[in-house]
Design a protein around this nucleic acid. Structure first.
Lengths: 126, 126
DNA sequence: ATATGGGTTAGAGTAAACTCTAAGTCAAAT
DNA sequence: ATTTGACTTAGAGTTTACTCTAACCCATAT
């Protein structure tokens, strides 16, 4: 069981952000007798997953949608499946772009190194 | 040689965006006798590269910096090299996150499919 | 006693990257 | 003649995802 501050620390987000996610109904932690938010292990896992979705460019609106469907129960399973499959495709596209660009950069970096080397040889000779 | 509208079409950006990039000194196309922007093949290649950087999460400020260093001449080659190497690292981190999340999604998707299948079997039997 | 960390509402502010509007000009094509 | 696509300046507006402030309350730890 974690307080908001502990969760913030653990996940590297601010307490502001956690309250904002709650306002957006992305996570709904429990409360203790004082009204303080209490996050369980499963809340933490949920948040971690959400942050992975965010890191992989899923917009907050989609994450909200997923969370909403979740609260709506089992009959939304197909919708959630669809949403996750769409995101999987998106990730595959991103991977493609990143791999391509990675290759381009490797080439450019090699060229730059050669260029600098030749230039510096020239300087040494002069 | 391309007009701004042609470049916009080819690259899938708006003419607004191209003028904005020019204001930000990311691309500086030539002009014809009427003052219309004229983009050469190399301008196009430059833009394509910039868009790849953008797609791989390089902020516009960094792209501007790279463009600025370029205009400053050969003595900035080491700085440009450093910038590209940093971005290569960033891409490697993104790849890691995406691959991890891709795996997570594959698992979740499998679970969902099983869950839906079992549920529908139940319905058929009832 | 006071500092720390938690709570609230309501709303303002921020940064990034566009995106668009107004209001006018100019040239080529139909 | 008019539509189309180009140009200009200057600045306003939009979206996303926070981020923070005010102003006040409550409980635990030092």
């Amino acid at each position: 069981m974690y307080t908001i501050g502990e969760v913030a620390q653990l996940l590297g987000v601010s307490t502001h952000t956690l309250r904002y996610y709650e306002k957006e109904k992305i996570i709904l932690p429990d409360r203790n007798e004082h009204g303080d938010r209490i996050y369980s292990e499963s809340h933490l896992q949920w948040l971690k997953f959400d942050l992975k979705l965010k890191e992989t460019q899923m917009p907050i609106t989609k994450i909200k949608e997923y969370a909403y469907l979740y609260t709506e129960g089992e009959h939304t399973a197909i919708n959630r499946l669809k949403l996750l499959e769409d995101h999987k495709s998106s990730i595959e596209n991103q991977l493609k772009t990143l791999e391509e660009t990675h290759k381009m950069l490797e080439h450019k970096i090699t060229s730059y190194k050669e260029m600098i080397l030749k230039r510096d040889e020239g300087v040494t000779k002069a």
